[in-house]
Computed example of a mutant assay.
Amino acid sequence: MLVLNCPTKLLILEKMLKSHFPESLKVYGAVMNINRGNPFQKEVVLDSWPDFKAVITRRQKETETDDLDHYTNAYAVFYKDARAYQWLLEEKDVINWNQVFQIQGLQSELCDVSKAVANSKQLSVKLSSFKAVCFSPVSTLPDTSSLMTSPPQLTYLSVADADLLNRTWSRGGNEQCLRYIANLISCFPSVCVRNDKGNPVSWGLTDQFATMCHGYTLPEHRRKGYSRLVALTLAKKLQSRGFPSQGNVLDDNMASLNLLKSVHAEILPCRFHRLILTPAAFSS
């Protein structure tokens, strides 16, 4: 195991990962954030350097964590050889197996390898799988002139909005998610439409892996074009900073799939996999 903390080598790694798109997108996004101030306090672990076969991004060891916070306790994985990934998983001190955490990536063997090692350590595993998508370069946006000077107004999220986002996110509704969303809003790009009272009615934000996430419009404000506007504006914001504009969508989320089709987003050939792993001590 090798922790890569040399700034020059991290920039080299970023370029190397780019040649392995789309499977490397999650790790690439995390490494890009590390190389641009590291707001989420991440670090990179590899099996070797420079000829690595597996790379994992994780929270820095010295950061304070909540053992129940699988949102923040998140690992992104890319490998050239699934066996190297398994060896890295099995190495001491690469993964904190004593807390609830998630592993995510865009490669099919990720699930079986992760589950096998987790089962050997008596952790339960919950798997979710999504279509992975990437936005084409956004050259033009819908007309927003009416949203610049008077409500509804196109702007960005603030930490004060975290409670609303926590209550409306299908993965949320708990203390850990509330804190996580507040951190995302503080650290990464977001977009929202606010009504005449200044409250968000439609929004999207970016996570620690530079993934567009929690795109949502309140039911009473749907069919007004807000979701399309928010998605394209956020994608363009990410692209202007050099990031890929990528996301994940459930197979049965037809509203989001139709929106993505209308803006010519590409459904990637690989799928996004997220595993939430829970030690026996925290299993209900």
Rank of each mutant, 00 (worst) to 15 (best):
L250R: 15
G242L: 07
Y85T: 02
P142M: 05
L178M: 00
R36W: 12
S262V: 12
A76Y: 04
G29C: 08
F135P: 03
A82N: 03
R83W: 07
D93V: 05
H70E: 07
S120I: 06
T155Q: 01
L234K: 02
G105H: 08
A118L: 00
R194F: 01
N174V: 11
A281L: 15
A182V: 07
L17V: 03
N166Q: 10
Y75T: 02
S146Q: 04
I185G: 06
L68F: 06
S262L: 08
L165G: 06
L110E: 04
A255P: 05
A74W: 13
T278D: 13
N195E: 01
R59S: 06
Q41H: 15
S240L: 00
V263N: 11
E23I: 14
N38P: 06
D51W: 00
Q107Y: 13
N174L: 05
L13M: 09
T140Y: 07
T65R: 13
R58L: 00
G247Y: 09
Y75H: 14
M1L: 08
D69P: 14
D196Y: 04
F272S: 15
N119V: 06
Y71I: 03
Q86A: 01
A76C: 12
K9V: 03
I34D: 09
Y75Q: 03
W169I: 04
S128Q: 11
G242E: 06
N35T: 00
C111E: 15
M254D: 13
I103E: 00
F40D: 09
D69A: 03
S240K: 10
K18C: 05
G173I: 04
S146N: 13
N73Q: 12
V263A: 02
K9M: 07
R58D: 07
V263Y: 07
K261N: 11
K92R: 07
M212T: 04
F78Y: 15
Y71M: 11
P151L: 10
P39D: 04
R167N: 14
V94R: 02
A82F: 00
K80I: 14
D51T: 09
D143G: 05
W87H: 01
L205I: 00
P137K: 10
K115M: 08
T211G: 14
K18Y: 12
K236S: 09
G29E: 10
C187V: 04
Q60L: 10
S284P: 15
S136E: 02
K261E: 12
P189T: 04
L260W: 11
R58T: 10
R274C: 15
W97G: 06
T155C: 08
D112S: 14
T63A: 01
N35H: 07
P151F: 02
I56Q: 03
S256L: 03
S256V: 15
I12Q: 13
S262N: 12
Q99I: 11
L13F: 14
G105K: 01
I103H: 09
W97P: 05
V201L: 07
C213M: 10
T278C: 01
